[in-house]
Design a protein around this nucleic acid. Structure first.
Length: 256
DNA sequence: ATGGTAGTGCAACTA
């Protein structure tokens, strides 16, 4: 089973690249973030023509998350199970092959002084509670998406540049640790404990060509599922060329 | 140089 997470930074702007990349990488499941479309504007037919069923949650020009799957998704859940007015279109979940799979787009946070940063921490806490509930029901769980948190300094091109910034603050990393504590592993890091490799590079200042990136797109899985992961890659080729997203797709292969 | 680029959508916000 090949699982991919990719923040496409507008699905409409990325449709041609997505189509060719899906042909090339041939994943079974694709978690997309920042589709930037409402459900009514989601290209269900075009995605179906690529060989994938679609589940999407989008309510405005912002955010928007989707799961593409070769197999029919079941038990679709839009947003968090617990009602929350402030949640925005940042999580969608479906059961595929017996696994509860979520595509998540964690709030950016903007700066440590911004109200959006508090929102980010609250959002991560809600995610933790939801994962905990699913695991306690005995479900197999996979959470893939843009976490907007670099788990360790190893995941940051220059930790000194990020002192006092979001994505690396102790509170954000603690929130992510709390999610690990309920029973999930960072799958890429389990396979490659020491690899310094990124998933996002700022469009500005030629960050990609300077190697100035962060590893903020993660695939988390319960311990049994994580133990089945055998190979992973950030596809930097997809960050090059005409009209790339600022994120590279992350590929994880699981033994069946 | 308190900058830069990309997306949405048409001004200004988000990242």
């Amino acid at each position: 089973m090949r699982v991919v997470t990719w923040n496409v930074n507008s699905l409409r702007a990325r449709m041609d690249r997505l189509a060719s990349w899906l042909k090339y990488a041939d994943p079974d499941i694709v978690c997309l973030q920042e589709t930037k479309v409402q459900d009514s504007g989601f290209p269900y037919e075009e995605i179906a023509a690529m060989g994938y069923h679609s589940v999407h949650y989008g309510v405005s020009q912002w955010n928007g998350v989707a799961i593409l799957s070769k197999r029919v998704p079941e038990e679709v859940q839009i947003g968090f199970l617990e009602p929350w007015d402030a949640q925005e279109a940042r999580i969608v979940t479906a059961r595929i092959d017996g696994i509860s799979i979520s595509s998540v787009y964690v709030p950016n946070g903007r700066s440590l002084e911004d109200a959006h940063y508090i929102f980010k921490l609250e959002w991560l806490k809600r995610l933790e509670l939801e994962i905990s509930a699913r695991l306690s029901r005995g479900e197999s769980v996979l959470i893939a998406g843009d976490f907007n948190v670099a788990p360790q300094d190893l995941d940051v091109w220059d930790p000194e540049e990020f002192v006092g910034a979001t994505h690396v603050s102790p509170a954000e990393r603690r929130a992510l640790e709390a999610i690990y504590q309920v029973g999930l592993l960072d799958v890429f890091r389990r396979i490659y404990p020491d690899q310094r490799i990124y998933t996002w590079w700022d469009f500005r200042r030629g960050a990609f060509h300077k190697g100035q990136g962060l590893r903020i797109d993660l695939v988390l899985a319960d311990l049994d599922l994580a133990a089945r992961a055998v190979w992973g890659l950030m596809d930097r080729e997809a960050r090059k060329g005409e009209k790339p997203s600022d994120h590279a797709p992350v590929i994880i292969d699981f033994q069946s």
